[in-house]
Nucleic acid binder design. Structure first.
Lengths: 214, 214
DNA sequence: CCGATAGTACTGAACGGTCCAGTTCCTGAG
DNA sequence: CTCAGGAACTGGACCGTTCAGTACTATCGG
């Protein structure tokens, strides 16, 4: 909410204060992602940030606030990725090819280790911080889906997809695409060979096009 | 190892020892599910189990072993559920109806709060206990999928489904069905209204049958 | 009788958060 | 440019609490 500093070292400036703040957030990301909320130590955050503990507590009132600040900062990223990826497909000439390409890129973006770990972290702490989970879901998840749905809506208007609820179609597409690899990544280790990912993307695209052919 | 001839308190017996062990595991389930691994206290486990702390440590060498034992004990459940549910569909006369029914039951089973919390817990601790995550994935997840795949294989043999890789088909079915509500449950609160769940089940079944019609 | 258990006190370590004394950096007035 | 003053920062000690795991004695039950 309203964190106003005494003078005016606004966060986006490159003042010393802003630099320290960045360092702290970066360090916190590292530590929280590695150990989870309870496992993370503020001493370690300070140490990794090369900053004194006092400074950490000057910028963030307590551990909880540092954590929520950190998570909320990242919710914007997912949507940007989706927009970037979905942009090309709206006015495609070869739907199967371009949708397959979208599937591959989407999968690639979501399977990045950092994204996976962040997902794990938010899920893990979702009942300690219900608001945070909901915010991440709405601002990261549903916004991305809505973007994709808009794209599918245009494809329906052009007669390239069966007319249905575009949001449902988007969810079905993503479900077909991500269910297998994301679960694998959540439970078993992180790595997923590129070739296998591409195969899954192709299979999901095929199934989706069969289900949503005009 | 060197058990004398004096009885033999094997865990499956109903000896006093076995009862205590059960009490401990039940209490541990409660505590771990509520607070996560790090947040769980062995004192609380002992207290809820109505057992002294010493007894806990007689049955389980340490916190870690208690946790893994607890999780591994539950992996058999999911498969049983799947078998029970999938059994009816193999020799159906009305595929759309019975597959819809399977979808509803499956969704109902997986959205039970306890199942959701267990899922969260395993995901949360998946990098602290990699073996545990993998075991859960293989014994709970893949076995369930394999069961469903066997069922779909029979449907393909009978010409009721398009011939494809049955395992892939099973994954696609589950992806269409569970993606939306499971993500919602993981991030936002637990509750999901029955009517909404049924609607999702029907939509997923429709889309699946369109994609996998013969 | 003998092993399992209760009850409880204890150890050693970690952690969140505070406090303080001394240092560095930025800014603005002369 | 110089320099003083104040804010931000450092480093580390410190407090109160929590927690895993152990020790030990008294009790219980088969």
């Amino acid at each position: 909410m309203g964190l106003q500093e005494t003078a005016r070292p606004e966060p986006w400036e490159d003042s010393r204060s802003a630099r320290k703040r960045r360092q702290i957030l970066d360090a916190a990301k590292q530590v929280f992602l590695r150990n989870g909320y309870v496992g993370a130590s503020m001493d370690e955050v300070a140490s990794i940030a090369s900053v004194s503990k006092q400074t950490v507590y000057k910028h963030f009132t307590d551990k909880e606030q540092l954590f929520t600040q950190l998570i909320l900062d990242t919710t914007t990223d997912v949507d940007q990725i989706t927009q970037l990826i979905a942009a090309t497909v709206g006015d495609t000439r070869d739907l199967e090819r371009d949708l397959g390409e979208l599937a591959r890129r989407f999968l690639g973006a979501l399977l990045r280790p950092e994204v996976l770990r962040m997902r794990r972290l938010v899920i893990a702490e979702a009942d300690r911080f219900p608001d945070l989970g909901r915010a991440w879901y709405e601002q990261g998840f549903e916004r991305g889906l809505a973007t994709l749905a808009g794209c599918f809506g245009r494809l329906m208007d052009r007669g390239l997809l069966r007319r249905e609820d575009p949001l449902l179609a988007a969810n079905h597409f993503v479900g077909l695409l991500l269910w297998i690899p994301l679960n694998h990544a959540m439970f078993a280790g992180a790595g997923y060979p590129r070739a296998e990912a591409d195969r899954l993307a192709a299979a999901a695209t095929d199934a989706f096009l069969r289900a949503y052919a005009p």
